[in-house]
Design a protein around this nucleic acid. Structure first.
Lengths: 182, 182
DNA sequence: GTCTATAGGCCGATAGAC
DNA sequence: GTCTATCGGCCTATAGAC
């Protein structure tokens, strides 16, 4: 039976799940804990989500959709400035920073959702955009440090005002790429 | 009853566990799977390790011991060159690269072992050694990108010969720090 | 939409024979 | 040192009342 795609209770379940996933990990969080936080019972969750897997996937989707769209855009644009590209990547990651944090910290759990393959693909395409398709190890290392560093800054400097954080993270990432002036 | 600290079977259990943890995550791996891979049974594992937790902790200990020792040395030395410091950090992480990979990818699971607190402490002390104790956000971002990037290179360029990998990773990390020549 | 009750499975861990 | 057998617990998921 078709249930509405959004409802207040459904959103509250997603919010509580995301909080608990961030606090203690995805695999370590049971449906019972999510239900308890909302003073519901487990079967109530199953009214809104067909399975635990569907709940997790519904949390990942907005970020993956935005990243796929961003990459398709930049690949179509042809000639892209590195700092602008990294800036757009930062903005998407920041907008979904709770889920971004999950993806950085909880990879083995999320591998059941094909997340690992998608992340590997994103990084491959971003690396191609940054240092070209046939880059040597040195160039690939610079791209890895730049891209990984952006994500690490998001997580580790989470309480910094976003403007300041954005500038600092982009400066460091561009320096790693070998573009000291940006 | 005191069991020997090392034995061939004990080592084989640790090797099989580390393989499975790397393949599918720590929390996703049961004692039954580890026993099956060795054609043993669960109770045989309990002869060698008092609990699942003790098995995991025994895998983490060599890396944590080496990192603690390295940091104590560098903090005592006073004046340290950034590239040399990062080089020693790379060498320890590479020597224990299987466990290093676990610590980067499986943080929520390993948080039960106090690993998160230790990693946060290591990064804080390494950051202090690299950019000083009162660094601003921009400097801390550079240190985060440099340190995180080293680990990412270890994982993502795992099939690169170590000499080449070491040079490429250190070059990129030093560039992020703002020391382009090393 | 939410509940009570429960099925069915895998887990970590232990008892006790060999 | 390793086995068979088993315990108690928590999990995901479902049946069916309200």
């Amino acid at each position: 039976m078709a249930r509405p795609r959004t409802s207040r209770t459904r959103e509250r379940i997603q919010e509580a799940a995301l909080e608990l996933f961030a606090e203690q990990g995805v695999r370590q969080t049971s449906l019972r804990q999510i239900a308890d936080r909302l003073s519901l019972t487990k079967p109530a969750l199953y009214y809104h989500f067909a399975s635990r897997e569907e709940l997790v996937a519904s949390l990942l989707q907005p970020l993956t959709d935005d990243l796929d769209a961003l990459l398709a855009e930049d690949e179509a644009a042809g000639d892209v400035d590195a700092r602008e590209l990294l800036g757009r990547y930062f903005d998407v990651s920041y907008r979904h920073r709770a889920v971004t944090g999950l993806m950085l910290r909880d990879l083995p759990t999320l591998s059941e959702f094909g997340v690992v393959e998608r992340i590997v693909d994103w990084r491959r395409r971003l690396t191609t955009l940054l240092v070209g398709p046939d880059a040597d190890v040195a160039a690939r290392a610079r791209a890895i440090v730049a891209l990984g560093g952006l994500g690490d800054c998001l997580v580790l400097l989470a309480d910094t005002p976003v403007d300041e954080l954005r500038t600092a993270a982009l400066d460091a990432a561009c320096a790693a790429l070998g573009h000291p002036a940006g």
